[in-house]
């Protein structure tokens, strides 16, 4: 990865933006479940939409759609690709 890649947390990404999962900020049971659902470092992720009230987020990962709250998304660091 080139060094100038921007790394932000998942909850800061805008709709349609793609990125690559870099790491989880903390280690916890919740993070483990998120990883088990396929949100693992190195994987490509796309923010599909935010819910009408702004929370939760819908993302596309490993070819399917997953929703998670901004609170949890804040734990995931993403390298922005587009």
């Amino acid at each position: 990865m080139p060094e100038n890649c921007k790394t932000i947390s998942l909850n800061k990404m805008s709709v349609g933006q793609k990125g690559r999962i870099r790491e989880f900020v903390v280690e916890s049971d919740d993070c483990e479940r998120i990883e088990e659902m396929g949100v693992t470092p190195g994987e490509q992720v796309e923010v599909v939409r935010y819910a009408p009230l702004g929370d939760p987020i819908e993302i596309k990962i490993r070819g399917y759609h997953l929703s998670l709250r901004k609170e949890e998304a804040a734990l995931i660091q993403v390298e922005v690709l587009s």
Binding site: D30, R33, I34, M37, P56, E58, Y64, H65, L66, S67, L68, R69, E71, E72
Partner: peptide
């Protein structure tokens, strides 16, 4: 703890 909300949105 606040429940984690991880939910699949199936087709």
């Amino acid at each position: 703890q606040k429940p984690v909300f991880i939910m699949e949105l199936p087709p």
